[in-house]
Amino acid sequence: MIAEMLAGLVPGGVYAGLAVCIVLMYQMLGVVNLALGAMGGLAACTSLLCVQWFGLGAGPSALVAVLCGALIGVILGLLMVRYFLEASVELRTTVTIAVLVGIIAVGDRILNGATYNFPNLFAGPSVEIFGTGVPIGSLIEVVAAVLLAIGVQVFLRTTYLGAQLRAMSERPVTAGLLAIRVRTLTVAVWAFAGAIATIAVMVVLPTSTTSFPPLAYLVVYALGAALLGLLRNMIVAAVGGVLIGMLQSIVQPSSIGRYTDAVPFVVIVLVMVWWRRRDVWSEAR
């Protein structure tokens, strides 16, 4: 049981990183970015191209990939501020579905069923915990995701820029009238999320299957974690991501292992029911 739980830190770290970004984007920009995993996956693929085509080492390749992730974020951010600045949350989220489909189409062409040697962002010996090796990258990712969540929440609550970002998410037009640089900040948040998503995906890539759709759909599991934080609390979302990863790892080798993919959906349903418990139970009464 302990070995399986610790193994869950590998996927859990990715879910945590992506979940923090989902909450961040929802809170700041009013969009549930369903293309987040695909953005990170596509950018991570550039690290592979850097190694194969230009012979770059793991570090420079990873840096290029993270910059690509930020660039993809910038492009999508510009698209959103140009055409969807005042659109509803539903419309913006729908646009990310279109982006998701488009990126999967491109990613499927890059990762087309061959074997790949992705550069390892945190190469090094695994850390032995209770007799089980845990990749150092996954440990770093879990800790980094929680620290990121804490840092962003503190930043938003205690700094002037954080206040501007919160104002922007509530009333973008009003914020613009108050000389807050809404467009610049929106693009910056997209770029930040793109970079973080890239790092999150890159950590898990060396020991994961290498077809593109699973990378894109990592966001589904992260969304379950984000919902644990009710799309508001990044720290709970990060911890939730780790817990979902651990839960999946415990379930996978068990007799109900065939239903591992259903774990986040069960979590989502339970959270939604709990979230709306007062409404539902009040009506029932």
Binding site: A3, E4, G8, T132, S208, P213, S249, Q252, P253, T260
Partner: peptide, 21 residues
């Protein structure tokens, strides 16, 4: 032991950690 995985979508780490255990 037989562990069933959806290789195409699941991370292989839990299955090998289980095998080690």
């Amino acid at each position: 032991e037989i562990t069933y995985t959806n290789d195409a979508t699941q991370n292989p780490t839990p299955a090998v950690a289980h095998a080690k255990a």
